Amino acid sequence: MRGRTVALITAAAMTAGLFAAGPAGAGTSLAALAAQGGRHFGAGVDVGQLNDVPYTTILNREFNAVTPTDAMKWDATEPNRNQFYFVRGDRIVAHARQQNMIVRGHALVWHSQAPAWVQSLNPAMLRDALNNHVTGVAAHYRGAVYAWNVVNEPLDAGGGYRNSFFYQRLGASYISDSFRAARAADPGAKLYLSEYGAEGVNAKSDGLYGLVRGLLADGVPIDGVAFQGHMVIGQVPPDVRQNLQRFADLGLDVAITELDVRMPLPRTAAQDAQQAADYATMTRACLAVVRCESLTLWTFSDKYSIIPWTFPGQGAATPWDATMRPKPAYTALYTTLASG
């Protein structure tokens, strides 16, 4: 009966427009519902979006965690060697503090969005620059960031090491070096390895599992694995929960950190229904694993989704449309968290 009540409430909210959540802790926001199970419910945010009042109204009401989508990446924080720039990231952190949200830092080391000067370094200089960058950024945000995605997307589609410029010049050691530098710079932050396409049991997640086991065996300070969750409508793997659980069984936290569910455009009612089911499936998978500590949307409105320019012809991937009206996916999230 509770699920039917929630469904009726949220359906009415969709008809009326933006859902009017109750006070924090009352079980009327997505964050409050997630918090009842000890989890964070987050959104990817860029600094310019904080000037969008309808957007920030929903952000502040429904979420208790934020991830800067671009403001803490290498090209944003150290565009020139040893010249650090933190203004964009600092503004997001300040907003999070004002709203009593936690911050997930993203991402200290990634082959993409690395400045040209980094990519041109020889091995010795690159290793020094990597350590200096991780130390500088993590130390600046020491105590302000709950968790870091330390290394992002180190694997290829088959589960082997991605042939990035980091791997070509430093080998796999750049991963462990990054984690050790992050731990030294910010001992209180949780340190995650982040990957996409590894949500279900497949060749890539098997490779990720082997990598993580090796890091643990070598004493590398890793606390968790971040599964991004960029899903295609109707193609959510049936074994997401089992996959999350096997990583949790290694003694690690797990998280879904960039969830969206893209569809071919134009959007249809049938696709909305399938998308809602897919969001519910991913949410249930996290709720079923005790050590799945958070779920983050990337982001929550189609207005700011990366999907249309990443996957031309696809979009409508988030639970709110471009006018900030909730879709069936929002109802599915609410109902699933309420019954979790």
Rank of each mutant, 00 (worst) to 15 (best):
A138N: 05
R183S: 07
D177E: 08
E78S: 05
P115W: 12
W117D: 11
R183L: 06
D177V: 05
M72C: 01
S178A: 15
G159A: 13
F63C: 05
N149K: 04
N149Y: 12
R104H: 13
Y161H: 13
V145M: 02
G160D: 10
S173E: 14
A184T: 12
I175T: 08
V118H: 03
P154G: 08
N100Q: 15
I58Y: 00
A147Q: 08
G136T: 07
G89C: 11
M101L: 06
Y174N: 06
N132P: 02
S176Y: 06
L59A: 03
R142D: 13
M101V: 05
F165E: 01
A157C: 00
G158N: 10
Q99P: 01
H106D: 07
A182L: 07
A116N: 15
I92N: 02
A94G: 12
V87G: 14
G188V: 09
P123K: 09
M72I: 01
T77W: 06
E62F: 12
Q168D: 11
A181G: 02
H95G: 02
A114G: 01
N82C: 02
M125E: 15
D90R: 01
Y196G: 08
G159I: 10
V118K: 01
T67F: 11
A157K: 03
A139G: 07
T69Q: 14
V93M: 10
P154E: 12
I92D: 03
W148L: 08
N163M: 09
D186K: 01
W110C: 00
I175L: 11
D75P: 00
P115D: 13
D156Q: 13
A129Y: 09
V66Y: 04
R104S: 05
L108A: 01
W148P: 00
W74K: 06
V103L: 06
S173C: 09
P79F: 10
G143T: 11
S173M: 13
A129D: 13
S194Q: 13
A157P: 00
T67G: 04
A172W: 07
A94D: 15
N80E: 14
L155H: 07
Y174H: 07
L121W: 06
E153K: 06
R91T: 14
N80T: 15
S194E: 12
A96D: 09
V103C: 03
H140A: 08
N82V: 00
W110I: 02
R180I: 11
R180L: 12
L193G: 04
V137H: 02
W110S: 03
V137E: 00
Q119L: 11
Y141E: 03
W110F: 05
A138E: 01
A114C: 08
E62Q: 15
D177P: 03
D75L: 07
V87Y: 07
S178M: 10
A116L: 14
H133R: 09
A172G: 12
F179V: 10
F84V: 07
N60I: 04
N163E: 09
A124Y: 13
R127F: 10
V150H: 08
G158F: 04
R127K: 15
R162E: 10
L191F: 09
S178W: 13
S173V: 15
G105L: 00
A65S: 15
N163V: 03
